[in-house]
Simulated assay, not measured.
Amino acid sequence: MPYGPDLDGTSEKAAKVASVRVQLEMHSLWEQFDRLGTEMIVTKAGRRMFPTFQVGISGMDPESEYVLLMDFIPVDDKRYRYAFHSSSWLVAGRGDASPPGRVHFHPDSPARGAQWMKQTVSFDWLKLTNNPLDDNGHIILNSMHCYQPRLHVVLVDPRRNSHSYAQRNFCTFSFPETRFIAVTAYQNHRITQLKIASNPFAKGFRTADPDDW
């Protein structure tokens, strides 16, 4: 089901962004992971997300240009640990100080609404890292903390005083089923199994005929 923007009621959005609707692709797969407690690997070098954050967009003005970007916000101020005896995540104490906030711009930005709406928009180049000194532009996260990905749609306003309309020219979308805990190694073996079963790039981890290797 397409989601409308997360409006906070503090400002009226421009018509060209208020009409935008976003639908999460691979929704059923995200829900499978969410039921288990999604985990995403973070590494020093940076690791891509799986499932990949992909959306279908509608309601844009075809001729106007938009910028798409993502950020990741902490769900709470807690640090977590995985309890193997109960196969569940438990609060382990106060969270660590948040690393530098970063955004990931979709590489096709800016583009006309017609281009964004004609195909699935995939953030497959986005990488997650736990290196606070990363200089590759990856999203920096704390391991064992819970995060919510957010998508921002920004209208490119050609007016010279466009900064005066900044609050009106963007809208934000978030999907609760995409939240995850950042880890350096998978804790729940069922998450590992589901990732291997559903990720086409994890073929080498599966039990297969040697002739297929």
Rank of each mutant, 00 (worst) to 15 (best):
M1V: 14
M1C: 12
G4F: 13
P5N: 00
S11E: 01
K13H: 10
A15F: 02
A15I: 05
V17M: 04
V20Y: 07
R21Y: 06
V22A: 02
L24I: 06
L24P: 02
M26N: 15
H27W: 08
W30S: 09
E31V: 14
Q32P: 02
Q32N: 04
F33S: 06
F33N: 07
R35E: 14
L36A: 12
T38V: 06
T38E: 04
M40L: 11
V42Y: 08
V42H: 10
T43F: 09
A45M: 07
A45K: 13
G46L: 14
R47T: 15
M49G: 11
F50P: 03
T52C: 11
F53C: 09
M60H: 03
D61P: 05
E65Y: 08
E65F: 06
Y66E: 04
V67E: 07
V67Y: 08
L68C: 02
L68F: 01
M70P: 01
K78G: 01
Y80L: 00
Y80M: 03
R81H: 10
H85N: 03
H85M: 05
S88D: 04
G93D: 09
G95W: 01
G95E: 02
S98V: 00
G101L: 15
G101T: 14
V103Y: 15
H106K: 07
S109P: 11
P110C: 09
R112C: 09
A114P: 09
A114D: 10
W116F: 13
W116P: 12
T120E: 00
S122D: 11
F123P: 08
W125F: 11
W125L: 09
L126T: 09
L126N: 05
L126C: 09
K127R: 15
L128A: 07
P132L: 06
L133F: 11
D134P: 12
D135H: 14
D135V: 13
N136V: 04
N136R: 13
G137H: 05
H138P: 08
I139C: 00
N142T: 01
S143H: 12
P149W: 03
L151M: 12
L155A: 00
L155K: 04
S162F: 13
Q167H: 05
N169Y: 09
C171V: 15
F173C: 03
P176D: 04
P176Q: 03
E177I: 05
T178Y: 02
T178M: 00
A185C: 04
Q187L: 02
Q187R: 03
Q187H: 05
Q187E: 07
H189N: 07
R190K: 06
R190Y: 02
R190D: 01
Q193L: 10
L194I: 05
I196C: 04
A197C: 06
K203P: 09
T207S: 13
T207R: 14
P210S: 10
D211E: 15
D211V: 14
D212Q: 14
